[in-house]
Simulated assay, not measured.
Amino acid sequence: MPRIFGREPALWLGLVAIVVKAAAAFGLDVTPDQQALINALAAALVGAVVAFMVHDGAAAAILGLVQAAIALAVGYGLDWSADRQAVVMSLVAAAVAMWTRTQVTAPVPAPAQLPPLPASRQ
Rank of each mutant, 00 (worst) to 15 (best):
H55N: 07
I70S: 02
T100N: 11
D79R: 04
V96C: 14
A61E: 09
A73P: 01
V20K: 08
L28F: 11
P109A: 15
R101P: 12
L72C: 08
A23P: 12
Q113A: 14
P107E: 02
A61Q: 08
G27P: 03
A68R: 02
L114R: 08
V87H: 08
A36I: 06
A10I: 03
A51R: 04
A58M: 06
Q85M: 05
P109M: 07
A24K: 08
H55Q: 09
A43Q: 13
F5T: 02
V50M: 02
A23F: 12
S81P: 05
M53T: 02
P115T: 15
P107K: 04
T105G: 02
P115H: 14
A119G: 01
A112F: 07
P107D: 06
V30R: 05
A119S: 06
V20M: 10
P9R: 03
Q34W: 07
A59L: 07
V92L: 07
G47E: 02
V108C: 03
A86H: 08
V50F: 06
A119K: 03
A94S: 09
I18Y: 15
Y76V: 01
I38C: 10
P9W: 03
A97K: 15
G64Q: 06
V49S: 00
L117Y: 12
P115S: 10
D33P: 04
G14A: 06
P111Q: 13
P115E: 14
Q35R: 13
S81K: 00
F52G: 03
F52A: 06
Q113T: 12
A51T: 02
P107Y: 05
A82I: 05
L72K: 09
D79K: 06
L114E: 00
T102E: 01
L45Y: 00
P32D: 14
